[in-house]
Design a protein around this nucleic acid. Structure first.
Lengths: 178, 178
DNA sequence: TTTATATAGTACGAGACGAACGGTCCAGAC
DNA sequence: GTCTGGACCGTTCGTCTCGTACTATATAAA
């Protein structure tokens, strides 16, 4: 009975819970940190709020420890996992914006070569981090273990974009036109 | 004498004003709409807030019409244009996240081919829109007119990323691995 | 016992966002 | 001339987001 619309944050919580159920917001925080959510972080304070809200809306069940830290422990309800499935199956209607600080400054006239000189190394670093992840997964797969395909594909997308960034800024650093 | 930190929104206002000074928030809104800020929109309501705030901080001067619509008209102060210059010259310290809804759903297990079938056309459309802009600018340049280099470079960046998106999702649509 | 560190949760204020609303102005219909 | 539709212009409001700072618990070494 969700009165308010669910946000991306909500679905991240639902999707994470779908994997590690039951869990506390703190569990979700750690999971999010290491699960290549390099591309959509949620400040940990919000995870507490979001879990509470989703429980209020009937998408999660909430249990609270009676002693010690009084952790709250959440699980998906049927309503919750249906909401998640629906979201995953709903086609995307609008593209996101890019929201890249470098491009923004470039647009407003910052010096391209100077921008490039700091951005090239940063993107190269992120790219090689991604590539290491990918190699890791290959090893895991070689060992016959399970690797979620979605996560791997998302990584490939990230790698593609980082390569493009490196290409673009490298050209600018060399005073060429991309 | 800025007590609070300036946000990206603030700098967008400063940078836009730097071009069309003096201007009302409404002018800025229209300027932002057509100035290829496809990659960092600001809801118009915020432009009014932001102008007021920047004026309070001494970065803008504010004049209000005494009759009719009582528009507020803003210009940069010296403080304001220095803040803008400083921002443009300050190296970027951290990379932005990607925040792409398609990648997020992909990560959480949505069907790649289905995602791709809606996303390929959307990215193709955006790509061709960008390419039309670029062609327009080439014409303007051919006619000997002035084209801000930054805006053109930002466009090139956008084109690069859209091409990458098209490549990535097209591969997925065809059931290949990107 | 004190101190350090990792773990776990909360509070709060500023800002972002979008939808809805309310005025102003002007041009053409009547 | 005044009515009215539509473009123009500005504000309000409630919710969401974000980040920082703070509090508290648990474990373990010093």
């Amino acid at each position: 009975m969700s009165s308010t619309r669910l946000s991306e944050t909500s679905y991240i919580v639902l999707a994470l819970l779908d994997r590690v159920q039951p869990a506390t917001p703190y569990d979700l925080k750690r999971l999010a940190e290491c699960s290549t959510i390099d591309f959509w972080t949620v400040p940990h304070a919000q995870l507490y709020n979001e879990c509470a809200r989703l429980a209020r809306e009937g998408l999660l069940t909430e249990e609270q420890e009676q002693v010690g830290r009084r952790r709250r422990i959440y699980s998906l309800t049927n309503l919750g996992s249906e909401a998640l499935k629906t979201w995953l199956d709903t086609p995307i209607e609008e593209l996101e914006e890019v929201r890249d600080l470098g491009i923004l400054k470039l647009f407003f006239g910052a010096d391209p070569a100077q921008l490039a000189s700091t951005l090239v190394p940063m993107h190269e670093e992120r790219l090689s981090r991604y590539e290491e992840y990918a190699a890791l997964r290959d090893n895991v797969r070689a060992a016959g273990a399970d690797v979620p395909r979605g996560a791997w594909l998302a990584l490939q997308a990230g790698i593609g974009h980082e390569r493009e960034y490196v290409r673009f800024w490298t050209a600018l650093r060399e005073h060429e036109t991309p």
